[in-house]
């Protein structure tokens, strides 16, 4: 195998030295084979280089994904997830926090406030209602 490659390389060298002259058929065959081998080996090496860089980037990406997943797992422990939000009634403007106030009383208070302020209830935003003791 090595002998054959050496022969091909010698043929190419001969071809180079007498480039301006006519090539013999055997020299042409040697040059063609050697040239095809050069193209193949060049692109094979490039392929290996691309596989290596690809592997590096894939492992980097996997690491980034793993760390991102770990962060999202750790996040709920630090701050507990909010309670499941109740479905809002049509026209409602969010939730009001009630402290020691029953629902019915809270509704009544909100209606009184709206009446006193002479504004429609759905234009007011109550944040919390707390019984003052």
């Amino acid at each position: 195998m090595l002998d054959k490659m050496t022969f091909a390389a010698e043929t190419v060298t001969e071809a180079t030295t007498k480039a301006s002259d006519d090539l013999s058929i055997s020299e042409a065959a040697g040059t063609a084979l050697f040239g095809y081998a050069v193209v193949f080996s060049g692109l094979i090496i490039l392929m290996i280089v691309l596989y290596c860089t690809g592997a590096y980037f894939k492992s980097k990406e996997a690491k980034q994904k793993a760390s991102a997943a770990a962060e999202t797992k750790a996040a709920p422990a630090a701050a507990p997830a909010p309670a499941v939000e109740q479905k809002l009634a049509p026209g409602s403007a969010g939730h009001v926090k009630l402290f020691d106030v029953p629902d019915k009383e809270a509704a009544m208070i909100m209606a009184i406030v709206a009446d006193k302020m002479q504004k429609p209830l759905n234009e007011l935003h109550f944040i919390s209602i707390k019984e003052v003791k």
């Binding site: 071809a15 301006s20 090539l23 040059t31 063609a32």
Partner: peptide, 15 residues
């Protein structure tokens, strides 16, 4: 490379 070889067989110079 096959056409290169063929061209030499048909009498063209290497270049």
């Amino acid at each position: 490379f096959l056409a290169f070889f063929g061209a030499v067989c048909l009498g063209f110079t290497g270049q």
